[in-house]
Amino acid sequence: MKYIRQFGIILSVTCAGELLKYLIPLPIPASIYGLVLLFGLLFFKVIRLDQVKDAGEFLIEIMPLMFIPPAAGLLVSWEQMRGMLAPLCVIIPVTTCLVMFATGKVTDFMLKHKEP
């Protein structure tokens, strides 16, 4: 029952992110709205970490499985992407490194300013 409640909380926040996407006319994905909303709820202690921790850990554990459908979609649209292969081979490693760098810096910042 604990997992159902935790998934329900995460699903509710995700649905609120979808709703915000339609209410706020910005080109921001609904998942980003949901992440920011969940972060805010956790930060301001509206939701405690233990209320979503187990379900969140489960979702992180199965995350690699979530990449299978997009990878299959890339294989299906290979003919359309063939012309963009050179730019993609440059853009993907560069943006991956930038995201890893930014994530590391944010994590360092958060750990240094963590409340005791």
Results as ranks from 00 to 15, higher is better:
residue 1 M to V: 08
residue 2 K to L: 13
residue 4 I to T: 13
residue 4 I to R: 06
residue 5 R to M: 13
residue 6 Q to L: 10
residue 6 Q to T: 10
residue 7 F to P: 00
residue 8 G to M: 08
residue 9 I to Y: 01
residue 9 I to W: 01
residue 9 I to K: 01
residue 10 I to M: 05
residue 12 S to D: 00
residue 13 V to N: 00
residue 13 V to R: 02
residue 14 T to C: 04
residue 15 C to H: 05
residue 16 A to D: 07
residue 19 L to T: 10
residue 20 L to D: 03
residue 21 K to A: 08
residue 21 K to Q: 09
residue 21 K to E: 08
residue 23 L to G: 02
residue 25 P to D: 07
residue 26 L to V: 13
residue 26 L to R: 06
residue 27 P to L: 01
residue 28 I to P: 01
residue 29 P to N: 05
residue 31 S to H: 08
residue 31 S to D: 09
residue 33 Y to F: 15
residue 35 L to C: 09
residue 36 V to L: 14
residue 37 L to I: 12
residue 37 L to F: 04
residue 38 L to M: 11
residue 38 L to Q: 02
residue 38 L to A: 02
residue 39 F to R: 07
residue 39 F to K: 06
residue 39 F to E: 08
residue 40 G to E: 01
residue 40 G to Y: 09
residue 41 L to F: 14
residue 43 F to Q: 14
residue 45 K to G: 10
residue 46 V to R: 13
residue 46 V to Q: 10
residue 47 I to V: 15
residue 47 I to M: 05
residue 48 R to T: 14
residue 48 R to P: 00
residue 49 L to I: 06
residue 49 L to P: 04
residue 49 L to V: 07
residue 51 Q to N: 12
residue 57 E to D: 15
residue 57 E to S: 14
residue 58 F to V: 11
residue 60 I to Y: 13
residue 63 M to E: 13
residue 63 M to I: 05
residue 64 P to C: 11
residue 67 F to R: 04
residue 67 F to M: 12
residue 69 P to V: 08
residue 69 P to I: 07
residue 70 P to V: 07
residue 72 A to C: 12
residue 73 G to N: 11
residue 73 G to Q: 09
residue 73 G to V: 06
residue 74 L to N: 03
residue 74 L to C: 11
residue 75 L to A: 15
residue 76 V to Y: 15
residue 76 V to W: 15
residue 76 V to I: 15
residue 78 W to Y: 12
residue 79 E to H: 13
residue 80 Q to S: 14
residue 80 Q to L: 13
residue 84 M to L: 14
residue 86 A to E: 07
residue 87 P to S: 04
residue 88 L to N: 05
residue 88 L to R: 05
residue 89 C to A: 14
residue 89 C to W: 06
residue 90 V to M: 08
residue 92 I to F: 09
residue 95 T to S: 04
residue 95 T to I: 15
residue 95 T to C: 06
residue 95 T to R: 00
residue 96 T to N: 00
residue 98 L to C: 10
residue 98 L to W: 05
residue 100 M to P: 05
residue 103 T to V: 05
residue 103 T to H: 04
residue 103 T to N: 07
residue 104 G to D: 02
residue 104 G to W: 05
residue 105 K to P: 03
residue 107 T to C: 07
residue 108 D to G: 05
residue 108 D to I: 07
residue 109 F to H: 09
residue 110 M to R: 07
residue 111 L to W: 04
residue 111 L to R: 10
residue 112 K to F: 09
residue 112 K to Y: 09
residue 113 H to C: 05
residue 113 H to S: 10
residue 115 E to T: 13
residue 115 E to M: 13
residue 115 E to Q: 14
